[in-house]
């Protein structure tokens, strides 16, 4: 009985004093998920990949360029690309933004919820390496510290033509599997 009360008090202290941000680092640094092995049938995705977009603490510049890449002037529907309504339907995860500690936990959870075969594209200087914010205290600089990445698209922000160019290069790489 005493032990149970001691445990509750200890949990209460830990829950209030230890900031939830530090608990997030603990969970994120525990284990980086491995890249899943690709079988030969994975290349059927190259005819119509569906994108899921996640913003992990960006300035919104790369997000409006990803949104503009879905509009009629650049028309990704020629390649069969569309924005998927939920993460369980997605093939390619497009990540923007310098990964903050609170959003990094959500990103890892999202990656584990995606079904195989899955690919990750990091768009913008902040997602690749931290960009301008690589020294800040709340930022784990770079998406590849949390999940494995397949293609990087630099630029601040990356033009919609460059985003389409990066997706096409990834799909071409799949043809050689």
């Amino acid at each position: 009985m005493v032990v149970k009360y001691l445990f509750l008090i200890l949990y209460d202290i830990v829950d209030r004093r230890l900031f939830s941000i530090d608990r997030c680092i603990f969970m994120v640094e525990q284990s980086k998920p491995m890249r899943p092995p690709l079988s030969g049938t994975a290349k059927i995705i190259r005819y119509t990949p569906w994108l899921v977009h996640f913003n992990t603490g960006a300035c919104n510049g790369c997000d409006i360029e990803v949104l503009a890449a879905l509009t009629p002037l650049y028309d990704p529907e020629r390649f069969g690309i569309k924005l998927a309504p939920s993460i369980r339907h997605g093939d390619i995860l497009v990540v923007t933004g310098a990964v903050t500690k609170k959003a990094g936990e959500r990103l890892k959870r999202l990656y584990e919820q995606m079904p195989n075969p899955k690919f990750v594209i990091a768009v913008g200087a902040c997602a690749i390496d931290g960009g301008v914010f690589h020294n800040a205290y709340n930022v784990l600089a770079g998406v590849d510290k949390v999940i494995p990445v397949d293609m990087y698209i630099p630029g601040c922000p990356a033009r919609p033509e460059a985003i389409l160019d990066g997706i096409v290069k990834l799909l071409k790489k799949l043809e050689e599997l």
Binding site: T56, G57, T100, A103, R106, F133, A136, Y137, N138, V139
Partner: peptide, 8 residues
């Protein structure tokens, strides 16, 4: 989710 610590 978006706090980057710009003032620091």
């Amino acid at each position: 989710y978006n706090h980057r610590g710009i003032e620091k």
